[in-house]
């Protein structure tokens, strides 16, 4: 913590995971992707989840993002028991509480930036007028106020990811879950996106970053390393030596 990055005071617990496991049945075999992971994430955290492929990183991310439910263990999101929710209840949680940022942006190709950003608000049942106002504001917040009527193919990669971030923010979620947000961008544009996430953190958002790149994880204030379905380490700040070890 000697690199001059500010750390905001931690808030209440948003995510509370205790001893969760996840099994995948593949034909005859059962693969255990998570073997008992416990994790608490507070509001105003900036957390990176790291690990090599096969470490259970993606599985954990799917759990955190309420895209999937654990095989066993306890998962509370803002005090609500997520582990036993059905598909539609999970959809509601994803809609209101989680903002997804994907590696491949995942914008609807034939819709304008504005319409892309409006999408979560439609699913939340917001009035058309308010929807448009909030979507335009979210786009302005990520520096794309002059690009609201552009379609994804009229935007650069960095701009597309900004649209995706605006879409993640527009419903004022409890956490922003970014999965390799710079994976499809050149390093300069990637840095710009990371600067934007830094800015969002400073403005009070909770950010969870899933990555295997050390340079990217270095932006976070807390790093969780995963290996073979277990948490190997959980540090404040970023420790390059330890990460090197993980990567090897």
């Amino acid at each position: 913590m000697d690199d001059g990055k500010s750390v905001r005071p931690r808030g209440r617990i948003v995510i509370d995971i205790e001893n969760i496991t996840k099994d995948y049945v593949m034909g005859e075999e059962t693969v255990r992707a998570l073997r008992g992971v416990s994790l608490q994430i507070h509001a105003n955290e900036y957390l990176a989840i790291m690990g090599p492929s096969g470490s259970g990183k993606s599985t954990l991310m799917n759990m955190l993002g309420c895209l999937d439910t654990p095989t066993s263990g306890r998962y509370e999101f803002n005090g609500k028991n997520v582990a036993e929710m059905d598909d539609d209840e999970l959809a509601a949680i994803r809609n209101r509480e989680i903002g997804f940022v994907f590696q491949t942006f995942n914008l609807l190709p034939r819709s304008t930036s504005l319409r892309n950003v409006e999408l979560p608000l439609i699913y939340a049942g917001i009035d058309p007028d308010e929807r448009e106002e909030r979507a335009a504001q979210a786009l302005a917040d990520v520096g794309l106020g002059d690009r609201i009527q552009h379609k994804p193919n009229e935007l650069s990669g960095g701009q597309r990811q900004r649209v995706a971030i605006a879409r993640a923010l527009v419903n004022r979620p409890s956490i922003i879950l970014a999965d390799e947000p710079t994976g499809n961008l050149d390093s300069k544009t990637g840095e710009e996106i990371m600067a934007l996430l830094e800015d969002l953190y400073e403005r009070g958002n909770t950010i969870i970053l899933v990555t295997h790149e050390r340079d990217i994880a270095a932006h976070a204030r807390r790093t969780v390393h995963l290996r073979d379905g277990l948490i190997e380490s959980d540090h404040a700040g970023f420790i390059p030596e330890l990460d090197l070890e993980t990567a090897s």
Binding site: G65, D87, D88, A92, F100, N106, Y123, R167
Partner: peptide, 9 residues
């Protein structure tokens, strides 16, 4: 993507 953004079944 739509499901991730909150589209229900």
């Amino acid at each position: 993507t739509r499901k991730a953004l909150g589209a229900r079944r």
